[in-house]
Design a protein around this nucleic acid. Structure first.
Lengths: 143, 143
DNA sequence: GAAAACCCGACGAAATCAGTCAGGATTGGA
DNA sequence: TCCAATCCTGACTGATTTCGTCGGGTTTTC
């Protein structure tokens, strides 16, 4: 039940880009150093983030990465799903089931509740929330 | 971000015991067969469940396992935490931090929100909820 | 006293994860 | 024009974790 480093590093990188939003493209190397992530590894994480349209890249000298939208419009759920895959807790749900008993399965609806709840949590937190020092009051009246 | 088989099998086993609650102790072998879990492996999972007081065991012939409380008083959160450890998503939080930057860390409060939200989800679902065919309306007004 | 059941620790195969590496493509600026 | 900065891609490997097995106990009932 731990997040892998992909998700963790990815969030750090996205936070970094949120901080320097409007500061022009940030070179991978700079992000990696500030966030203490191996550069070559971070590079692997930026590729899917770019493909999913969460960041844009500028090639060539003075290039780098930048958020494709304002921090308030990017949720950590989007980032985590891109880097970690479906936050499904259990496979059974992802591919719309290879589970033999499918809808007769009494545990299935539980996993579904957990998945949906988890997704609504992470989709209720934006990069902007991380920027604000006053510990964010959560929007989606959870808890 | 997947649950390991420990959590999955554990929930299946607990569901099985919930179904046969008041049916006397259930032999490990019977549970394992009904739930399609390797018997020797399931045995490993029952030990911590017993230590944490979620199930009771009756030794000797005609012995077996049974829930220590009615299904409505056991949440899947309790089961999952017993078998999977802290549902912390990220280590940083568990041991009350070895993270160098600790409270200055902007991602930390996010992980905390996710952890707390996840815990409140799984603690809002009981074994009883799995028994009822009408897809449970969730108590903790999530989502 | 034998069978049924729980109890425990060690072990190994398989899968996943974390991170490296080498080489290529694209662009800006001297 | 050419060099340096930068992004891009896929292959590869060592470490860690997970999954499940195995062999040997102990306790209790019949």
């Amino acid at each position: 039940m731990r997040l892998s480093t992909r998700g963790r590093y990815g969030i750090h990188a996205m936070y970094d880009l949120a901080v320097s939003f409007e500061g022009g493209p940030q070179p991978l190397k700079a992000i990696a150093e500030r966030q203490s992530v191996p550069e070559a590894y971070l590079e692997q994480l930026m590729a899917p983030l770019r493909r999913d349209g969460l960041v844009k890249s500028v090639r060539g000298a003075q290039g780098g990465y930048l958020l494709s939208r304002p921090p308030a419009e990017i949720t950590i759920g989007q980032v985590l799903r891109t880097l970690e895959g479906d936050l499904a807790i259990i496979e059974c749900l992802t591919e719309d089931d290879f589970c033999d008993r499918a809808d007769g399965c009494p545990t299935r609806k539980v996993w579904k509740q957990v998945r949906d709840g988890l997704n609504s949590i992470v989709d209720g937190i934006t990069l902007q929330d991380m920027l604000e020092p006053n510990a964010g009051t959560l929007k989606g009246s959870l808890q």
